[in-house]
């Protein structure tokens, strides 16, 4: 059987397990990306775009200021030549305001509008793609931290925030796996302890070691406290009822399987 498996593998032209694994991994990663990253947003690119927008906006503003300055100087020179400067004109603030209002006010309005639009767009992008997913992730992460392992963080993008959500989900899955393994092991150990306890109890009274009985009871208590601990958590698609780990009824369990698929030649362990 084992030789057949390897022969089949060779027939499919597998160069080596390492090569194949690397190739499969790449294929898997590509598939994952296409399946789950329908709203892929490269935040680095978004940030570069906004940086360029701000740069353009600032340079436009700077150009306008320089232009106003140039015209202001020209006007001052012209005024100095034509007639003496009045007292009010000596006030730099008043002169500045008048110059700004005199020289191309529409450019200033456009610049301010442009800046305002830039700020609003930045805020929208920040809220839409950073703050809201972060808030969602934080809320779900808090519930997971409180022991609700049935909580799943929605992963809507393959960026840094999506990766954080996916990683927290993986941690929750691993924790669930570990706790359920502990549950099954402690169940097995409890049964074994009960069996040993019964065997010792059946021995004549003078042969029973009270120290052993005490140790067994202590072990049993330890197992029980671990099981109580495990039961405190809420699990994804799993409930612990009495001593059994059960799953809610799913379609997969209910649906009848065609007779052709009921091979029934496998092995089932009690």
């Amino acid at each position: 059987m084992a030789n057949k498996g390897l022969a089949d593998a060779m027939k499919r032209n597998w160069k080596s397990p390492v090569y194949e694994t690397a190739q499969n991994k790449k294929k898997r990663d590509d598939q994952k990306r296409s399946d789950k990253c329908s709203t892929f947003i490269p935040y680095n690119k978004v940030l570069i775009c906004f940086f360029l927008l701000l740069l353009f906006s600032f340079s436009a503003g700077m150009k306008l200021i320089l232009e106003i300055n140039e015209q202001k100087q020209g006007k001052k020179i012209q005024e100095a030549i034509s007639h003496p400067i009045s007292a009010s004109e000596m006030d730099p603030l008043a002169a500045g305001i008048r110059n700004i209002s005199e020289f191309r006010p529409h450019r200033m309005i456009w610049t301010i509008g442009f800046h305002f639009f830039g700020i609003l767009a930045t805020m929208f992008v920040f809220m839409r793609y950073f703050l809201n997913p972060l808030k969602e992730t934080t809320t779900a992460a808090k519930r997971i931290a409180d022991g609700h392992l049935d909580e799943t963080i929605p992963v809507r993008s393959c960026d840094e925030i999506g990766n954080v959500g996916q990683t927290i989900n993986d941690i929750a899955v691993n924790l669930q796996e570990t706790l359920l393994t502990v549950w099954n092991h402690t169940e097995q150990c409890s049964v074994a302890i009960d069996h040993i306890h019964d065997q010792i109890s059946m021995q004549p009274a003078n042969l029973i070691s009270h120290e052993t009985i005490k140790n067994l009871e202590s072990l049993k208590q330890g197992m029980e406290s671990m099981r109580t601990w495990v039961k405190e958590f809420d699990y994804y698609a799993v409930t612990i009822v009495e001593k059994k780990v059960l799953a809610p009824e799913s379609d997969g369990m209910k649906q009848e399987i065609p007779y052709s698929q009921q091979l029934g030649e496998g092995e089932y362990h009690d």
Partner: peptide, 29 residues
Amino acid sequence: ILFLSNLDEEKYGEDAKRLGAKGYINKHK
């Protein structure tokens, strides 16, 4: 297909058999 799960073997072993799987074993074994 061999099912490896933490779920109760007695309860779900039969479901797995009906599906046409070759076996059902608890993960920690």
